[in-house]
Simulated assay, not measured.
Amino acid sequence: MTNGETVRAAIEELRRAILSLDNALDMRFDRERDHGEVEGEVRRVNADRSRLAQELDQSEFRANRLEEVNREVSRRLVTAMETIRAVLDR
């Protein structure tokens, strides 16, 4: 093998190594981008979960309050009906 052939072979081997490194870098960047997208999605899901938990708490509070108001209205209606019956019975 002559010096020229040796240099050409070394250059070709270097070219293949650089190409391989370039491909490895591309794959690494793709994985990191995908990882970043997954982390972003996890953050969005957690934010949604927090928001939904807060909305659920508020809904439960409103439902409990409505239940209390319903009981009070029912009690007042019973009192009013008893009063009307008492007046009509006189």
Results as ranks from 00 to 15, higher is better:
V7T: 08
G40D: 13
R16N: 11
M1T: 09
I11Y: 02
A86L: 10
A86N: 11
A17M: 06
R43V: 03
E82T: 06
A63V: 05
L52I: 04
D57K: 06
R75L: 00
R76D: 04
A63D: 03
N64R: 06
E13G: 04
E67K: 03
G40I: 02
E39R: 09
E37Y: 06
D34I: 02
R15A: 10
L66Y: 07
S50E: 10
N64D: 05
R76G: 01
L56Y: 10
A53D: 15
R51D: 02
T79F: 07
F61N: 15
L88W: 05
E67M: 03
M27Y: 13
R62M: 07
D22M: 15
V78G: 03
D30L: 08
D22I: 14
V69G: 00
D89N: 12
A24K: 13
R65Q: 07
D48Q: 12
M81K: 13
E67F: 01
R62D: 08
E37R: 09
M1W: 11
V42L: 11
Q54H: 09
S74T: 01
A53L: 05
D22A: 15
N3S: 13
L66Q: 09
R65T: 09
N3R: 11
N3T: 12
D57S: 13
E82P: 03
N64G: 06
R33G: 01
V73P: 00
A10E: 12
L88V: 11
S74Y: 01
G4E: 12
L19K: 15
E60I: 03
A63Y: 04
I18N: 14
L77T: 10
N64T: 04
V7D: 08
S59V: 04
R43Q: 11
M81Y: 11
L56R: 13
T2N: 00
D30E: 07
R31I: 10
I84D: 12
L25N: 13
E68K: 03
T79H: 10
R71F: 03
E39M: 06
L14H: 13
D26G: 11
R8L: 14
D26Y: 13
M27G: 08
F61P: 05
E82A: 07
